[in-house]
């Protein structure tokens, strides 16, 4: 039994990698969840095709979670189904688990860990590392946490089942985003003068001038993130357009 459930969990883990594949505006990851749960449901309804059809249909409704933490829900649901928890409870669980898995994952991965890894990669590139080392550092560091989250989530969901909320509340995941803010702020700050030096160098502008401009703008951007982001993209488009037109007119 233990060996069987180990194999089952591995299959759930692998299927979780594709949970986003059919993301859509109606059910979001709904079909993805159904797809991921197939091994568990098929085992549960081994001899009963009608029952399998019914439970697949239930699990292909609305669902959404951070993809890396979707394993928490997948494992907990697999366990609840295998233990025969009634379907109304299962539905309520699904409805509630969407929220923490989205929120925890968004804050930790999208808002902290991914920017941190990509800025770190750019930082070491600017410090003079070869490009492939920088790319390697990004892929290795980012995916180490990515895969750890999937495995950790699967174990937690499998162990706690319906009560996984309490375990999530006490988990390090809740504190981690705030902790990561410090290195993220530091790395993003450190990239600014390095970038100014590198770009100033190619265009022959003095470092004091470029660093001053870059720091001033980076600090200004903290106050109004939305506006600064739009200005950045707008500046890029307008600036490049000016150059293309300038280039054509000289040519």
């Amino acid at each position: 039994m233990a060996a069987l459930s180990r194999a089952l969990r591995l299959r759930l883990l692998l299927r979780s990698l594709l949970v986003q594949a059919s993301w859509n505006y109606r059910t979001m990851q709904g079909a993805g969840l159904g797809f991921a749960l197939i091994p568990a449901l098929a085992r549960l309804c081994r001899d009963d095709r009608a029952e399998l059809a019914k439970s697949l249909r239930r699990h292909c409704g609305f669902f959404n979670a951070h993809p890396y933490l979707s394993t928490v829900a997948i494992a907990a649901l697999a366990r609840m189904e295998l233990e025969g928890v009634d379907s109304e409870q299962v539905e309520r669980f699904k409805r509630a688990i969407v929220s923490p898995l989205g929120s925890l994952g968004d804050r930790l991965v999208w808002a902290r860990w991914r920017p941190l890894c990509s800025l770190l990669a750019f930082f070491i590139f600017l410090m003079g590392a070869p490009w492939w080392v920088a790319v390697g550092v990004f892929l290795a560091s980012y995916n180490a946490v990515h895969l750890w989250l999937r495995v950790w989530g699967l174990r937690l969901g499998w162990r706690e089942g319906r009560e996984v909320g309490r375990a999530l509340m006490g988990s390090p995941l809740r504190r981690l985003p705030d902790r990561l803010t410090i290195p993220l702020a530091a790395v993003s700050g450190a990239v600014v003068p390095l970038l100014a030096l590198a770009l100033g160098g190619t265009a022959g502008i003095g470092p004091l001038f470029t660093i001053g401009i870059a720091l001033a703008l980076a600090i200004a951007g903290y106050g109004r993130p939305g506006l600064a982001g739009r200005l950045a993209v707008l500046g890029l488009l307008v600036g490049s357009l000016a150059f293309v037109i300038l280039g054509i007119s000289i040519w």
Binding site: R92, F93, A96, I97, S99, P100, L101, G102, S103, L104, R107, R162, E163, V164, G165, R166, L168, M169, S171, R174, R175, P177, D178
Partner: peptide, 15 residues
């Protein structure tokens, strides 16, 4: 009325 559901919703919040 439901504590385990409240736990789930709370779990996603920052401190």
């Amino acid at each position: 009325e439901s504590e385990w559901e409240q736990d789930l919703y709370r779990a996603g919040l920052p401190d």
